[in-house]
């Protein structure tokens, strides 16, 4: 299988504080890769390196490389805007814009200068279908997105990310603010999405990682302790610390 990301000796700092210590591994295309670990282990920092969202944080900087399609996304001649268009992201708390459902989905296209109504209409339907929310909202596309339930809002955010046709979708603890039923829907969706997209998901819920992912990386104190097939990690981890974490001895 092809690699999507090649992470090489990645180190990340918030000011003088080191958040990631020398992380290296590959993320494969069209698979679901889960990142797990106790809170504060650097898993969120890591996923935010993949689309350079950390650029928004004052005092943040990285060393090392993340190769995406063979190019280092942190090299100077890379346009961060392009990176983010190709690598979508869904956040912890659903964060729809305070606008209509329709405008939420097409925002990514509008900012690229795409305003043709037919194109937009098609993209809206297609994205909402892929995000498994079309049936629920098709009759009220022009009402405010803030009126949707939390689970619906999160699926809308997924549709919004899909609309710009990214290759990768990053999920940063997408279910931490949702109830179990809404969580199950999102998990089904993630499993379906890997047909077309490379998915990376950060989660503090180990069962979730086991359910949805094919590969799992275990982070602790800024280090990648172990990276392997999910099944292996959850049955026969090679590292003692991973085993302790999986079996719930800490964290």
């Amino acid at each position: 299988m092809e690699t999507a990301f090649k992470v090489k000796n990645l180190k990340a700092y918030y000011g003088p504080k080191e958040a990631l210590k020398d992380v290296s591994f590959d993320i494969l295309k069209k698979t679901v890769t889960a990142i797990i670990g106790p809170s504060g282990c650097g898993k969120s920092t890591f996923i935010r390196c993949l689309n350079r969202m950390n650029d928004l944080v004052l005092g943040f900087n990285v060393k090392g490389e993340i190769l995406y399609d063979g190019k280092n996304i942190y090299s100077k001649d890379i346009d961060v805007i392009d990176i983010r268009r190709q690598i979508g992201m869904v956040f912890q708390k659903p964060n729809p814009f305070p606008k209509s459902i329709y405008e939420n989905v097409v925002y990514g296209l509008r900012i690229q200068g795409i305003n043709r109504k037919e194109t937009l209409d098609n993209v809206v339907e297609e994205s909402l279908r892929k995000a498994a929310i079309w049936e629920e909202v098709k009759d009220r596309l022009h009402t405010s997105a803030l009126q949707l339930s939390g689970g619906q809002q999160q699926r809308l955010c997924i549709a919004r990310a899909i609309a710009t046709e990214p290759e990768v979708i990053l999920f940063d603890e997408p279910c931490s603010a949702l109830d179990p039923i809404a969580t199950a829907k999102i998990e089904d969706l993630i499993t379906a999405l890997k047909q077309e997209y490379t998915v990376v998901i950060v989660t503090h819920n180990m069962q979730q990682a086991a359910r949805v992912s094919e590969y799992t990386g275990f982070f602790m104190m800024g280090e990648l302790v172990e990276f392997d097939a999910t099944q292996k990690i959850f049955t026969t981890p090679s590292n003692k610390m991973t085993e302790d974490y999986i079996t719930g001895r800490f964290g």
Partner: peptide, 24 residues
Amino acid sequence: SIREASYALGATRWQTIRSQVLPA
């Protein structure tokens, strides 16, 4: 989070401000 959502979709800083932050 609104700014994050916009940046994550590949918006520039000014696009984020003009179409999301300022209207809100």
